[in-house]
Computed example of a mutant assay.
Amino acid sequence: MRCGYFDAGACRSCTHLLTPYGDQLAAKDAHARAALPDGVRWLAPVASAEGGFRNKAKMVVAGPVDDPTLGILDTDGRGVDLRGCALYSPAMHVLLPALAALVSTARLTPYDVPTRRGELKHVLVTESPDGEFLVRWVLRTTEALPRLRKHLPAFLAEHPEVVVVTANLQPDHKAVLEGDEEVVLTERSTLRVEVDGVGLHLGPRAFFQTNTAVAGALYRRARAWADEVAPSSVLDLYCGVGGFALHLAAPGRRVHGVEVSEQAVASARTTAAELGLDVTFDAGDATGVTGADAELVVVNPPRRGLGSQLCATLERSAATTLVYSSCRVTSLARDLAALPSWVPEEAQVLDMFPHTDHYEVIVRLRRQVPQ
Rank of each mutant, 00 (worst) to 15 (best):
A101F: 03
A101Q: 12
L102I: 03
L102V: 11
V103I: 09
S104C: 07
S104A: 13
T105L: 14
A106N: 02
R107A: 02
R107Y: 00
L108W: 01
L108M: 09
L108N: 03
L108F: 05
L108Y: 01
L108Q: 03
L108R: 01
T109M: 07
T109Y: 02
T109S: 03
T109W: 01
T109E: 11
Y111N: 07
Y111Q: 05
Y111L: 08
D112K: 00
D112W: 00
D112R: 00
D112S: 00
D112G: 00
D112V: 00
V113H: 10
V113G: 06
V113L: 13
V113F: 09
P114I: 04
T115L: 06
T115P: 02
T115W: 02
T115M: 06
T115D: 03
R116F: 06
R116S: 10
R116W: 05
R117H: 13
R117L: 13
G118A: 11
G118E: 08
G118F: 06
E119N: 03
L120K: 07
L120C: 06
L120M: 03
K121W: 04
K121E: 04
K121L: 00
K121P: 07
H122L: 13
H122A: 11
H122N: 13
H122M: 12
V123R: 05
L124F: 01
V125Q: 01
T126Q: 11
T126F: 02
T126Y: 02
T126H: 13
E127Y: 06
E127C: 09
E127P: 05
S128D: 10
S128A: 15
S128T: 14
S128P: 11
P129C: 06
P129Q: 08
P129Y: 07
D130G: 15
D130K: 14
G131S: 06
G131V: 09
G131H: 10
E132Y: 13
E132I: 13
E132H: 15
F133V: 02
F133G: 09
L134E: 14
L134I: 12
L134M: 15
L134Q: 15
L134Y: 14
L134A: 14
L134W: 12
V135A: 10
V135L: 10
R136V: 14
R136I: 15
R136Q: 15
R136K: 14
R136G: 14
W137K: 03
W137C: 06
W137T: 05
W137V: 08
V138Y: 09
V138M: 04
V138D: 07
V138N: 03
L139C: 13
R140P: 01
R140Y: 01
R140C: 04
T141Y: 00
T142D: 14
T142H: 14
T142I: 08
